[in-house]
């Protein structure tokens, strides 16, 4: 199966390249893979994720996502690439002045879908994450777990090629966390979406086969 993400001798750094976070990392992630990335605090898990959605350019090496080399990508190409990604944040990053339904269909809005399609999809997605009755509410009226379900629904809205999740359950209780894992497992299983999750701890109840990468001492290692 083809690689959705491919890194070769990847070095990531902040402060204009002075502070290296990841050094000479090489790995491949295939379509439909469910990947957990773990590591101690400050090891560079979120930095790696940031680089995958083009927020941080590689200092050295190659990083190819969806066939695009992120070291040499134009702003327009990056914009296009991002429309094929679903991104989930620990702090949800919902737009608080928009309703839940409008938040969910943001990727469809960006892709230029009609309002009718957006409305139908909002209904379907909110039903999928069991938030139908909250469609017209605003994010701040929801609990943390509910907000994250909105975040997941938004990430799934356009059937993305890859879902990147940064500590998606970091702020949630066990029940809400399990709901989020279920949703992501379903996406991976049913839609063959590649899922990369940065987390401190791999959930104990997880039924899908998955790959596990550890970031340690600036290196990225796969645990077999």
């Amino acid at each position: 199966m083809s690689n959705v993400i491919s890194a070769k001798n990847l070095t990531l750094a902040y402060d204009n390249g002075r502070k290296e976070i990841i050094k000479n990392a090489s790995f491949n992630i295939k379509k439909g893979d469910f990947v957990f990335i773990t590591g101690p605090s400050g090891s560079g898990k979120s930095t790696l994720l940031k680089s995958l959605y083009g927020q941080l350019k590689p200092k050295e090496g190659n990083l190819v996502v969806g066939g695009r080399d992120l070291a040499n990508i134009s702003p327009r190409q990056l914009q296009e690439l991002r429309t094929h990604m679903g991104i989930i944040f620990q702090d949800y990053k919902l737009i608080n002045e928009w309703t839940v339904a409008k938040n969910v269909v943001l990727p469809l809005m960006i892709a230029g879908y009609s309002l009718d399609v957006q409305e139908t999809q909002a209904h379907r997605l909110l039903k999928h994450v069991k938030l139908s009755e909250h469609a017209d509410k605003y994010p701040l009226e929801l609990s943390g777990g509910e907000q994250q379900r909105v975040g997941v629904a938004r990430a799934l809205a356009k059937n993305p090629v890859v879902i990147l999740a940064d500590e998606p359950t970091g702020n949630l209780d066990d029940y809400s966390s399990n709901v989020i894992w279920d949703l992501m497992e379903n996406a991976c299983q049913q839609l063959e979406t590649t899922v990369l999750v940065v987390t401190h701890k791999i959930p104990t109840i997880f039924s899908l086969p998955y790959r596990h990468f550890i970031i340690e001492s600036k290196g990225v290692y796969e645990v077999h």
Binding site: Q79, R82, T83, I87, I95, N96, L106, I110
Partner: peptide
Amino acid sequence: RERMQVMEIFGAP
């Protein structure tokens, strides 16, 4: 700021 940043992450022109 926040709204525009979120939209940018999702590829909004």
